[in-house]
Design a protein around this nucleic acid. Sequence first.
DNA 1: GAGTAATCGAGACGGTACGTCGTGTCTTGAT
DNA 2: ATCAAGACACGACGTACCGTCTCGATTACTC
Lengths: 185, 185, 185, 185
Amino acid sequence: MAPRKKQAIFEATLDLVAAKGYDGLTIEGVADRSGVNKTTIYRWWPSKAALLGAALVEAELLEFDPPDTGSLRGDLTAMVDAIAKLLDDPPTREVAVAALGAAVRHPELDTRRFFADRFAREQEIFQRAVRRGELDPATDPMLLVDLLAGAVWIRVIFRDLPLTENFARDAVGAVLDGVGCSSAS
Amino acid sequence: MAPRKKQAIFEATLDLVAAKGYDGLTIEGVADRSGVNKTTIYRWWPSKAALLGAALVEAELLEFDPPDTGSLRGDLTAMVDAIAKLLDDPPTREVAVAALGAAVRHPELDTRRFFADRFAREQEIFQRAVRRGELDPATDPMLLVDLLAGAVWIRVIFRDLPLTENFARDAVGAVLDGVGCSSAS
Amino acid sequence: MAPRKKQAIFEATLDLVAAKGYDGLTIEGVADRSGVNKTTIYRWWPSKAALLGAALVEAELLEFDPPDTGSLRGDLTAMVDAIAKLLDDPPTREVAVAALGAAVRHPELDTRRFFADRFAREQEIFQRAVRRGELDPATDPMLLVDLLAGAVWIRVIFRDLPLTENFARDAVGAVLDGVGCSSAS
Amino acid sequence: MAPRKKQAIFEATLDLVAAKGYDGLTIEGVADRSGVNKTTIYRWWPSKAALLGAALVEAELLEFDPPDTGSLRGDLTAMVDAIAKLLDDPPTREVAVAALGAAVRHPELDTRRFFADRFAREQEIFQRAVRRGELDPATDPMLLVDLLAGAVWIRVIFRDLPLTENFARDAVGAVLDGVGCSSAS
DNA sequence: GAGTAATCGAGACGGTACGTCGTGTCTTGAT
DNA sequence: ATCAAGACACGACGTACCGTCTCGATTACTC
């Protein structure tokens, strides 16, 4: 179910993708760097995308510990900061972007896995908030997460703009309090 | 400043990217399909990403007319729906995803251009809202756009989930009114 | 001294070589077809050529019964016809050609074995002819065999030409009677 | 109709086939040795066999000048000696054997070409002999050639035996004078 | 009938070469 | 000035077999 040098292969995969991006990631390169033969990699993963997917799932690189600051606002802010950090630091940024590229372009790759996994763990934040009475149980937590995470992706990756110091605070403020639109229905 | 068959080249580029994704888009394929020699393409665009970028800028495919419904809420909802439609329809979805892939992986490509262009036109919505007194002039409009647009991307592309019927309404509601957090600062 | 499924292996070997030629013969293919593991074959024969060699030696396919027609001329004609038949019929032709290819290209394979074996049995023909007084005992029988067998190979395999009806008769006539050269020494 | 470094490619091909036999001849090896890229070779020849075939046709290696000694017997003896020399000398032997292997195993390769070409030039010998009155015009010259050439191949290559000193004389004697069979029809 | 070889199947592995595709460069000659 | 045509070096692709290796599982002979 796994090649003998799985760890070396995954490390090489992530190193290369971090260094050269998704296009610069080649099976041959991974084989070279991990001291394994090309055919061994093909024996276990059918494509570059699948290999990267497997490496990401096993990697602690994209791991995520849901913050627990005592308040929903604090937790969400911490979450936004964590995503921002992930997408700002060169090594993880490249990996995250590559993951996106791979996921988006290869339907055979279960792109949902990354996000579903992560979202499952984020649920805690909202469960605690509901328990504390901070959040209406009817609220859809995924909407909040998507609004916030999406904003970071758009700003940092799509727009390639740096985040302002209080981006996290403002964004969380917007989704929790609204921006104050006079025509509230 | 432009090859003689520019239109044919751009059409071929977008057709191919829609049909086979970013990876399936090749310079040779474009040359074939547009009846142009490979060298001609290289003479004008340095890379696949640059070609795609140019094609996208000229294309009406991703064009965008800022909605004017009379209210900020209505305009934003329409905007979210427009983005959702773009990312849901097979032809434009593929192109958008490819554009993302290209932008994200090629720093030489001015990814900001797409989004800056678009955002410039979205500004109208907020200017009108401010004029109507619906929106605090101090509000950062880009934050609103990023929250909403990001949520659609995350949900549709990253998570590969269909949008619910009232996604646009709920999302706009959240950013305008907040979700009702008891610990509002 | 021999694997348990030797017969199945040899059959598979000859089937494959007949069907796909020497290059199309692979150890893995033989293993598959004979229901044996690849390692088992390697345990017993060091190479494709050795395996084919062993299969040929054991096979009745290339077997040969020296004809006995009562006259040297008749025997030789029958021998030529037998060789011609071997090299003309699709199944044995392929095998013979493959054997040649293998033998010729693998010194470790005792190519002499096939021909020495065969020649030993052909000796009978000449011994009988000498006993009958048809043939000068000083004549080198191997020369006769080589002239005749070689002519068939050249014509059928090298030149890829069909044999004429009376090729055997003419060839035997030539070596027994000469072609009538006025300058006989 | 021909790559720019055709000569280098052919040289490398023949060198390699002489050094390592037909199986040791690889397209990649030829590419390396001739300073050409692998794809260039594939552009011009569809297979190893085709490449070798082309190299042989252009090579002077297997070239042949029909001898003219003044008598048919002398010419034929010289021809046999020439073939023997070709098949005995290590460099040409390997090439000849490889050519045989290639020709024999690849129907797409026009094996007849080598032999037909050669035979066309051998015709001279017989035309002269007929003019001199040495040879019955009704005699089939191809039969003589095949008998003699075949005998050399069988003895030297198939049997892997060295030729005796007077092999050529004896063989020519046999086909011209017959071996003296008492039952001559 | 148990014990001990010999034999085998399964399958991972490093490796070589395959034949193909696309890249981006170059030159030549036509328009 | 722009282009088509096309040869080319190059890098990587994904595949097929090679021959080797370990590990248990079967045989099948021997005592």
